[in-house]
Design a protein around this nucleic acid. Structure first.
Lengths: 143, 143
DNA sequence: AGTGTAGTTTGACGATCGCCGTACTACGTC
DNA sequence: GACGTAGTACGGCGATCGTCAAACTACACT
């Protein structure tokens, strides 16, 4: 738990893999990503980020798979181009909703639940519940 | 309780004041406003509406003054022009966040709390709490 | 009828948004 | 080194957004 940041306490230190190990999993290395500090996360930005169906879909998937801790961008398979996918993940990161790190060629994503719950208690859960309720109500599958 | 709709169960019937009465308060009359039905309210539209600081400010004021039931547009005194104010209230109404009726020259506004609570339980409260928390955190007055 | 108040409508503006394709970089593997 | 994979950066496109000013409508009051 030292060469990789935990999603519950993300800090954006570059931390250029000082101890190489023969683990099967590649380490976070090379490029660094900018994340807003917890105190810099703004409610209006979070609401704006979540108001896009594509990004809501990402956040819901991340929340469902929360015990997995991290998902690569590619597992989402959004019905948009690669560059648009990059754009949406960047919006989510820059507004503080998700945490991203590079791991080999992949970029892993995790919800910043601890930060969001601390700043806006209950908000994420009620949004997720609302999204699930609405999906049931409209009967559609995530569209 | 028949010539005016209640904010807790708003229906958008025109209801053109069939029984005139000498009450001190002018009745809802004349122009009618379109409101989405409860089932037509979409989470993404609500989140988008709330992601604008000006509209969030309106919703928070409406929530604080909820026992008053209705507030005219003019009491808000937003730091934007009249036409922009009209625009923001229209966005809030069309996405189902507020209910509006004409009462004389004024247009009265009320939160559609019953509808929102039914569709998205806890969402409105956690958003309002988050906004209050953030205001305290940033120390600013509603900005 | 005239005046004032409250809000609307229209059209415009610059900014942002969501989306794309193309060209590119970084990494792992053969 | 060559190749494939994962994701980025750069522009560009049309649509939407927040904002405004100007002209307008609806109502109340004198």
């Amino acid at each position: 738990m030292q060469t990789q940041t935990t999603p519950t306490a993300p800090q954006s230190q570059p931390q250029a893999s000082s101890q190489p190990q023969a683990s099967s999993q590649p380490q976070a290395s090379g490029r660094s990503l900018e994340h807003p500090r917890r105190e810099a996360i703004r409610l209006e930005d979070v609401l704006h980020a979540l108001s896009d169906p594509m990004r809501m879909r990402v956040v819901r998937t991340l929340a469902e798979e929360e015990e997995t801790c991290e998902l690569s961008c590619s597992v989402f398979d959004l019905p948009v181009s690669k560059s648009t996918t990059t754009h949406h993940f960047r919006v989510l990161r820059e507004c503080g909703v998700i945490h991203q790190i590079y791991r080999g060629t992949a970029k892993m994503n995790a919800l910043r639940r601890a930060d969001l719950d601390a700043l806006f208690p209950g908000l994420l859960d009620s949004v997720l519940a609302a999204a699930a309720l609405q999906e049931g109500r409209l009967g559609g599958d995530r569209g």
